Simulated scan of single mutants.
Amino acid sequence: MRERRQFYVVDKKVLPEVFLKVVEAKNLLEKDKTLTVQEVAERMGISRSSFYKYKDAILPFYEKGKGEALTMLIHLQDERGRLSDVLNCIADAGANILTINQMVPMNGIAIINLCLQTFNMKSEIEDLISQLEELEGVQEIKILARE
């Protein structure tokens, strides 16, 4: 039986320095695809083995500075392509989908729960909601949370 992973939110001030260096190394590798792990490890003053040991165990936590998180429920006609239209509208607006959950459709209506990150949006949230409401098949949109 697989052991269930547990996660903790910890202030970075109490983390060992190697963890912070691994996070920075991951950021450098993401920004500059020409760098190797060896080059980044040397630059950060850590060993390659430390990088590989911790790289998959240290995950970023969503930061409020990265834009608002918007959670909404969309009541959508259960017809082919309707969800795709909604997702394309969100992508075109520059929002990033953090989570999506669709309930089993009942009486021809699917209820979609979406959480969006708005950091890179090209327009205001209200404009996106108006665009979504105009899509064929969208019955109702309820905003559950704005964080």
Rank of each mutant, 00 (worst) to 15 (best):
residue 7 F to Y: 08
residue 146 R to G: 15
residue 131 Q to G: 14
residue 25 A to N: 12
residue 50 S to D: 04
residue 53 K to A: 14
residue 102 Q to V: 01
residue 124 E to D: 09
residue 64 K to V: 11
residue 143 I to E: 14
residue 137 G to A: 12
residue 61 F to G: 15
residue 134 E to W: 04
residue 102 Q to C: 03
residue 100 I to S: 04
residue 14 V to A: 11
residue 65 G to A: 12
residue 15 L to D: 14
residue 116 L to F: 02
residue 24 E to S: 10
residue 128 L to A: 10
residue 76 L to Y: 02
residue 55 K to E: 13
residue 60 P to W: 03
residue 124 E to T: 07
residue 34 T to Y: 00
residue 103 M to Y: 01
residue 116 L to D: 13
residue 119 F to G: 15
residue 62 Y to K: 14
residue 89 C to T: 15
residue 25 A to E: 12
residue 76 L to C: 05
residue 74 I to E: 05
residue 84 S to Y: 13
residue 25 A to Q: 13
residue 139 Q to V: 07
residue 40 V to Y: 00
residue 147 E to I: 03
residue 100 I to T: 05
residue 21 K to G: 12
residue 56 D to V: 12
residue 17 E to K: 04
residue 38 Q to H: 14
residue 126 E to V: 05
residue 122 K to I: 03
residue 24 E to P: 00
residue 72 M to P: 00
residue 100 I to Y: 00
residue 61 F to M: 12
residue 85 D to Q: 13
residue 46 I to H: 07
residue 74 I to F: 00
residue 8 Y to V: 05
residue 53 K to P: 13
residue 93 A to I: 01
residue 35 L to W: 02
residue 26 K to M: 07
residue 132 L to C: 06
residue 82 R to M: 02
residue 89 C to G: 08
residue 34 T to K: 01
residue 83 L to C: 06
residue 17 E to N: 06
residue 68 E to R: 06
residue 33 K to D: 13
residue 87 L to M: 08
residue 114 L to K: 10
residue 73 L to E: 14
residue 36 T to D: 11
residue 1 M to K: 12
residue 114 L to C: 11
residue 4 R to G: 15
residue 142 K to N: 13
residue 74 I to L: 04
residue 49 S to P: 00
residue 45 G to Q: 10
residue 94 G to Y: 03
residue 44 M to S: 07
residue 20 L to Y: 03
residue 132 L to S: 11
residue 136 E to W: 01
residue 67 G to C: 06
residue 143 I to W: 01
